[in-house]
């Protein structure tokens, strides 16, 4: 359970949740009290089953499946992203973005994502099991 919770928060933000919670708090005596209390409440949170069983999709990722089928049975010329090596997705999107790789629409879409957003999306799809 703890693992699920942590994994979810890591994937959605590069900084761990505990760091986001406490980062801006001064570590005075007074502050440290709140700090430890927050850790306590955080521990409580992480020990409870999170309703989201799957890792949360990073920004933009869920929209890809409008064109890139999740289901292998769909007859489409558009390649699937599920289970593909993240490095391949990252390289393809970089080439679309720079215009090196010819595209119909992916050049226009790739330009809307930063390198770190692309990496997160690629890793999210890569981590899925290809059925």
């Amino acid at each position: 359970m703890v693992k699920t919770g942590l994994a979810r928060h890591r994937s959605s933000n590069p900084r761990p949740l505990w760091e986001r919670v406490v980062a801006k708090r001064p570590l005075s005596h007074k502050g440290r009290g709140k700090y430890l209390l927050q850790i306590a409440s955080l521990l409580a949170l992480l020990c409870v089953a999170h309703p989201a069983a799957a890792a949360e999709a990073p920004p933009g990722a869920s929209a890809c499946s409008g064109c890139h089928a999740m289901d292998a049975a769909v007859a489409t010329p558009v390649p699937r992203l599920v289970g593909r090596k993240p490095a391949e997705i990252i390289a393809a999107l970089a080439a679309f973005k720079s215009g090196q790789r010819p595209a119909t629409v992916m050049d226009r879409i790739a330009k809307g994502f930063s390198d770190s957003e692309i990496r997160a999306i690629a890793e999210w799809y890569g981590a899925m099991e290809a059925p």
């Binding site: 499946s65 409008g66 064109c67 890139h68 089928a69 999740m70 289901d71 049975a73 769909v74 007859a75 489409t76 010329p77 558009v78 119909t104 629409v105």
Partner: peptide, 14 residues
């Protein structure tokens, strides 16, 4: 046009 057809199949399957 081919991708349009693929899109329809994909999104309706989704």
């Amino acid at each position: 046009a081919k991708y349009a057809d693929g899109w329809f199949k994909t999104i309706t399957a989704d």
